[in-house]
Design a protein around this nucleic acid. Structure first.
Length: 326
DNA sequence: GTGTGTCTCAATGAAGTATG
DNA sequence: CATACTTCATTGAGACACAC
């Protein structure tokens, strides 16, 4: 305890004999203020603990505590060592928890909500990847409108969803990572009259029947305001439905025109999805306002949910992005 | 077998507290 | 105020495990 310590280099204290039990002891000593109590916490005898403290003093070359009648008081050196030791112990506890959480993240059930476009664009590729990387995670996907997904999120029906935060909900309850605009395409059946002539315009389209979401829906409002902004009349004959199946059936069997998410249009055209034989009349004719990856501010995601959430965020190119309000 | 490290037990010392 | 008691840290002796 007399010579001045050399300038510490790598593993200095370990080479001088500092052990992990020393760190546990000094941390316990800071909390208890008594060597005997610290010894009891470590399940060693009081004299053993007393020796260990003396060893630490020898290793560090400084006095770590002063004795008094009802225990000991740490010196500034002892306090410093104890605080560091507590940090290291806390770090190890955190590491243990992380490892358990990582293991838990390998299994579990995740319920994801999504509006139609992102369900195809983001959720399906994510689920496909998760099947390989996390085969023990079971995934449920709910495809619905944003307002209903927000309700489901609040009611714990979904763990998170891809969509928008609409209406008069309390936005402070949500966390939203903005992903981007949702492009819409206009689809018609194969052999539709408008596919035969020169390239169709929106003005040509409004003369036909349209299949739109019910009044008040975001898609319908977007379409209507876009047409009005172009100085065009609104379609006179509209079939209102929220059903994608009915929309595709109407488009396939009639001359109706329907705006659908571009991802849906691509799926139908390239994959003959749902058996629909349709073509895109106009790609990205409209764009619905940006959608987001939405979770609840106050509810932490389960490890398994976090795996899927992170994978979707990466798929959407959101890695490293901060939270945004939507 | 020897040396080293770590532990426990028992004895001892130091200091505070209670009591007459 | 003196003494006995209590609490806590320290020290010495010895046991045990392990590496060389």
């Amino acid at each position: 305890m007399s010579e001045a310590p050399e300038m510490p280099d790598r593993d200095y204290l370990v080479r001088r004999g500092l052990r992990f039990s020393h760190l546990r002891l000094i941390a316990a000593l800071k909390e208890s203020g008594q060597i005997s109590a610290a010894a009891a916490r470590m399940a060693i005898s009081q004299p053993a603990a007393s020796r260990m403290v003396a060893e630490m003093e020898d290793i560090l070359g400084v006095s770590l505590y002063t004795r008094h009648a009802r225990g000991v008081t740490l010196t500034r050196y002892g306090e410093r060592l104890a605080v560091r030791a507590q940090g290291m112990l806390q770090g190890l506890d955190d590491t243990a928890r992380e490892i358990v959480e990582m293991e838990r993240g390998m299994r579990g059930t995740v319920s994801i909500g999504a509006v139609t476009g992102p369900a195809l664009d983001l959720v399906l590729p994510t689920v496909r990847k998760a099947r390989v990387t996390h085969p023990r995670i079971s995934v449920t996907v709910t495809v619905d409108t944003s307002d209903r997904l927000a309700e489901a999120l609040l009611a714990s029906g979904v763990d998170f969803y891809i969509g928008r935060i609409l209406g008069d909900v309390d936005r402070s309850k949500f966390q939203a990572l903005s992903i981007g605009l949702e492009p819409m395409s206009l689809i018609v059946r194969v052999d539709h009259p408008l596919t035969r002539g020169p390239e169709a315009t929106l003005r040509d389209c409004v003369a036909y029947d349209w299949v739109l979401q019910p009044h008040g829906g975001l898609q319908r409002r977007t379409v209507e305001s876009h047409l009005m902004a172009q100085g065009l009349p609104l379609p006179q004959k509209v079939l209102s439905t929220a059903s994608l199946m009915l929309t595709l059936a109407a488009v396939t069997q009639t001359n109706a025109i329907a705006p659908v998410a571009k991802a849906v249009a691509d799926f139908c055209i390239q994959e003959q999805g749902l058996g629909a034989r349709v073509v895109s009349l106009m790609d990205s004719a409209f764009a619905i306002p940006p959608y987001s990856l939405v979770s609840l501010s106050e509810r932490a995601l389960s490890p398994a949910s976090m795996v899927l959430f992170s994978t979707i965020a990466a798929e959407a190119g959101l890695e490293g992005r901060g939270m945004a309000t939507d």
